[in-house]
Nucleic acid binder design. Structure first.
Lengths: 151, 151
DNA sequence: TTTTTAATATTAGCACGCTAACAATAAATC
DNA sequence: GATTTATTGTTAGCGTGCTAATATTAAAAA
C-alpha cells in the first residue's frame, strides 16, 4: 500500500513557508535603511573583500551571473558601489565600495541584530544551536559549499 | 564597546542562504513535472478544499492577492484549474480543479518525497524532529499563523 | 598563426514575492 | 434611498532568483 504523504508534516513544506516569510521580513528590515535583501549580501561580501568581480560575487553568493549583474546595478544606482574595468582582463569589471557603501555598514549591522532577535523569538538556546548546525548542513546539501570564501 | 557582529554566524544569515537554495531545489523538482513552486502550493490547498476564492488562497498561503492572481493564471494556462464566477458574490471567482489538476497529485507526491529525501540528507532523526519544531515556531513568528486552515 | 574553446558580462524573458492604484460590487451607515 | 466604506479582483511595476542567448575577450589547441 502506498503511504499517504502529508505535505504539512514534511520539513520541505515548512521550509517553503518559512523561506517565503523570512524573505519578506528581510526586505522589511533592510527596506528601512533603503536597501533590498539581495543588495545586502553583495555588500557583506565586499566588506570582506573589496574589488571583487561579478563572477566572484556570483560564486560566493551561490547565485547566477545575471542576478549579480542586476543587484550590482541597483547598488550603483544608489551610489553604494562603483564598477571599474581593469587592464588585466578586458572582459571583467571589478566592484568597489564607495564611501557611502562603507558607511552604511553600521546601519546594516543594527538592522541585522533586529532581524536576528525577531528570528530567535520563542526559540530556546538549545534549539538555536541545533538550528545553526542544521542550517549549515542544509546549505552544504543544496549549494555544495560551506562558506562564501570558496574559489 | 559595540560588539562586532559576525553575519556568517547568525541564524538569519544561514537562513537566507538556505532559503535561496531551497527555492531553487523546489523549482527543479517541480519543474520535472511541468509545475512551478508557487503553483504547487495552490494545488495543495485546492486538494484540501476545492473551489476556494483567490482571497481565501491568499490568506491560507500567506501571500498577497496579486501573487495568487498570477499563480492561478499560470495554472489556468496549463489547464490544471479553472475559474468560475459565482452568483452569490459578483466580485469573487472560485477556483476549481480540473481532472488534470486532480490527476497530477500523484506526480507531485512522488516529487515531494524526493525533495524531502534530499532535504533530510545528512540530518539525524533528532535533528529532523528539532528542525520540524523550530520551523513551526518560525512560521508563527513570521506569519502569525500555525496552519493554512485559518479564516 | 589561425582556429577553437573557455570565461565574463550583459540582455531578454519568466516565476514569484511585494506595494500602489483602480474598477466593480457588497455591505454599512446616514 | 443615497452615500460611504469595505471587499474582491486586476493591472502596473519593482527586486531577486532562474535559463537561454549574445558579444567580447582570453586562453588553448591545431
Amino acid at each position: 500500500m502506498p503511504e499517504k504523504i502529508i505535505f504539512e508534516e514534511t520539513v520541505s513544506y515548512l521550509l517553503a513557508k518559512v523561506t517565503t516569510a523570512y524573505r519578506t521580513a528581510l526586505e522589511r528590515h533592510m527596506g528601512a535603511i533603503g536597501l533590498h535583501g539581495g543588495q545586502t549580501f553583495v555588500l557583506l561580501e565586499l566588506w570582506m573583500t573589496d574589488g571583487l568581480r561579478q563572477i566572484d560575487l556570483a560564486r560566493r553568493l551561490s547565485v547566477s551571473a545575471p542576478t549579480v549583474n542586476k543587484m550590482t546595478k541597483g547598488l550603483i544606482d544608489i551610489n553604494l558601489v562603483k564598477s571599474s574595468r581593469v587592464d588585466e582582463d578586458a572582459r571583467s569589471t571589478r566592484i568597489f565600495l564607495t564611501d557611502a557603501g562603507r558607511a552604511i555598514r553600521l546601519d546594516v549591522e543594527k538592522q541585522w541584530i533586529d532581524l536576528e532577535d525577531e528570528c530567535l523569538t520563542g526559540l530556546t538556546e538549545t534549539e538555536r544551536l541545533v538550528l545553526l548546525e542544521v542550517l549549515r548542513k542544509l546549505r552544504i546539501t543544496y549549494t555544495g559549499r560551506e562558506t562564501a570564501n570558496a574559489e
